[in-house]
Design a protein around this nucleic acid. Structure first.
Lengths: 208, 208
DNA sequence: CCGAAAATGACCCAAACAGGCTATTGTCCG
DNA sequence: CGGACAATAGCCTGTTTGGGTCATTTTCGG
């Protein structure tokens, strides 16, 4: 298993090198202090430990670039912060893992092993924040506003796909006027006043 | 740490009981074979191991119900399948963990510990599938269509919030007519023909 | 079996919108 | 300097939408 490291903090980098060097399963290919240095002599690593806070190009900015240049490379973000925004940015840009520097060495080795085997490595607290993105909207939405009926949900779904009144009516085999009435009721329940607002609310609050 | 189990497969349930009983940190409150049985004599557990495939009400359907009735209860889904759809459903309904039955006993204990400490417990392969939901859309979207200008993005964002032409104009200190023109250009680039479609595309492809 | 809620349908009207065309100004790049 | 593009602005026309009010039928739970 070929591993590279990009981490500017010399002391911590040496620790990582030591940990990885302790196991014969792991082969350290490259260990540098910046993305720029890494790109000058790229190693064909399989797993990359990438710091977020780096001098020059940040780890977050390097992520999509590295993923594009080395397809198949698994990248684990290493960071001191478990900042919500950083986590989501990293994940959206293709990170395969996100672990905190304060983690025990064994956890870091586990993470490398996990991503090598095709999994993703998240510390439990990071995983919690990721999951929050899914069930936050769902839990807070059904509370406030009135519930939509099945028919209304059906029509809202079509509106959300940009279908106009005429086509919705044709689709559901009902009169356009009836569609209009349903839409009025939907607006009242969602407390919106236009299709654009309805679509926005429907998508953001996972009503569809 | 108070733990309950809902699992219909008797043999596996007994294994779980045994594993949990082996540690003095854990206190087994209740161990039953169905959601219905659990609701009849609810225990004030802190962590619940919940099977997905259950006779009667499924674990997925019970999830929101249990979460509502016992706020603060952490639920770990236990299942044989790592089916994509089940995972996402469970997460959207508030699961705090999702682990496979074939996991080593130690992993299950770790998961309980992790959710108890406020984290989320996902096996690496499940985590991979969750992450895929984030970086899939981002990678495929910026390809096809033409890029929007800064002004167009600004206006698209306002449209996405349901603001009408008049208000957008007032907001940006430009003429409503100019806003109309920008919107026409946005429509052309996004290949849509209405605000609703534009909002839908903007939100679904993370353009805003 | 009755009443509430949902689904269906209609009319009107003012406002908003979509699409077509033209035009001026500014900026940036080759 | 000249062309490309973005941002600004106007006009016209037909369509769609949002809001108001009313009425009939169906469905479902008490």
């Amino acid at each position: 298993m070929k591993i590279s490291i990009i981490e500017d903090h010399t002391e911590f980098r040496h620790s990582l090198e030591f940990i990885i060097g302790s196991f014969s399963d792991f082969q350290l290919m490259s260990s540098v202090g910046s993305v720029e240095a890494y790109l000058q002599q790229p190693a064909d690593a399989e797993v990359l430990l990438l710091d977020i806070n780096l001098p020059g190009m940040s780890g977050l900015d390097a992520l999509p670039l590295l993923k594009k240049r080395f397809p198949g490379l698994k990248v684990i973000m290493l960071t001191i912060l478990d900042d919500d925004q950083h986590i989501m940015t990293a994940i959206c840009r293709g990170a395969d893992g996100y672990i905190l520097k304060k983690s025990q060495p064994q956890k870091i080795l586990d993470a490398v092993q996990q991503v090598y085997e095709g999994g993703a490595a998240l510390t439990p607290l990071v995983a919690r924040q990721v999951l929050a993105f899914f069930h936050k909207p769902v839990t807070h939405s059904p509370s406030q506003q009135e519930a939509l009926t099945a028919r209304e949900l059906e029509i809202l779904a079509l509106i959300t796909n940009g279908v106009n009144t005429e086509k919705i009516a044709a689709n559901l085999f009902i009169s356009p006027q009836t569609v209009r009435n349903h839409i009025k009721n939907i607006y009242a329940k969602l407390q919106v006043h236009s299709r654009a607002q309805a679509v926005s609310k429907a998508l953001r609050e996972n009503i569809v």
